[in-house]
């Protein structure tokens, strides 16, 4: 089937009444012009596929790839029927860090047979607030990974300036992963720090989408 669109505006200088049938619009190179009617994740969220979880209080992160982990970790159970698509990750620290140049990122791992051992669960929730279903994925502030993870993406570096009083700025520490990491059944992702963070200092969050395999 050959689909033809019209180059340029459908009308010269007015809006088109609702319900009017019109041709699709194309650019000067034949490119199809579309617009994102709603927020990027509206349709997925409306379909009750988007979820969130966050630390309820500060935690101490473990060093790098330690299997017995504290921080914030999301895991897709081995027998689940969904892929976990990471959309956004946020993190912040409440106290001065013990070492200068703590690199923060997200690390990932996979084991097709053994689940993450859940030590301290964090309750995830639907982003269709109050009316959405519970997610399949599990989130913990403390867990044991079955296989050592590897660093997937670096977010930045936390310094240990002479005090937390140097500035009162609040740089945004929330990453748009935009679906660039998918956790299949058996996959997991966790906040990474090169060293253990300061006492009870880190809070983090994940927003993700769950889609059929």
């Amino acid at each position: 089937m050959l689909i033809q669109n019209q180059v340029g505006p459908i009308t010269a200088n007015s809006s088109i009444s609702a319900g009017t049938q019109v041709p699709g619009r194309a650019g000067q190179l034949g490119d199809v012009i579309v617009s994102a009617l709603h927020g990027r994740y509206y349709e997925s969220c409306y379909r009750r596929n988007v979820f969130a979880a966050a630390n309820a209080a500060g935690v101490v992160t473990t060093i790098a790839f330690t299997l017995a982990y504290t921080g914030l970790i999301i895991s897709n159970p081995v027998a689940s029927m969904i892929n976990c698509v990471l959309l956004k990750v946020g993190y912040a620290f409440m106290v001065l860090q013990p070492t200068s140049g703590v690199i923060v990122g997200v690390m990932t791992g996979y084991n097709s047979a053994t689940n993450v051992t859940h030590t301290a669960a964090v309750t995830p929730k639907s982003c269709f607030v109050g009316v959405g279903a519970n997610p399949i994925c599990l989130v913990d502030s403390s867990a044991t990974m079955p296989t050592a993870p590897t660093l997937q993406q670096v977010f930045g570096t936390v310094l240990d300036g002479s005090a937390l009083t140097i500035t009162n700025t609040s740089p945004l520490t929330m990453m748009d992963l935009e679906g660039s990491i998918i956790l299949p059944p058996g996959g997991y992702a966790a906040i990474y720090t090169t060293i253990a963070s300061g006492a009870a200092s880190m809070m983090a969050s994940f927003i993700w989408e769950e889609l059929p395999l």
Binding site: A52, A54, N55, A56, K88, G90, Y91, A92, F93, M94, T123, K125, C127, L164, T165, I166, T167, N168, T169, S170, P171, L172, T173, M174, M203, A204, S205, I207
Partner: peptide, 19 residues
């Protein structure tokens, strides 16, 4: 309940930086 972490605010004087 908490959905998303955005960042953290420090306590310095607001005259320290103009960023």
């Amino acid at each position: 309940t908490l959905f998303q972490v955005f960042g953290s605010v420090l306590t310095g004087a607001i005259t320290v930086s103009n960023t």
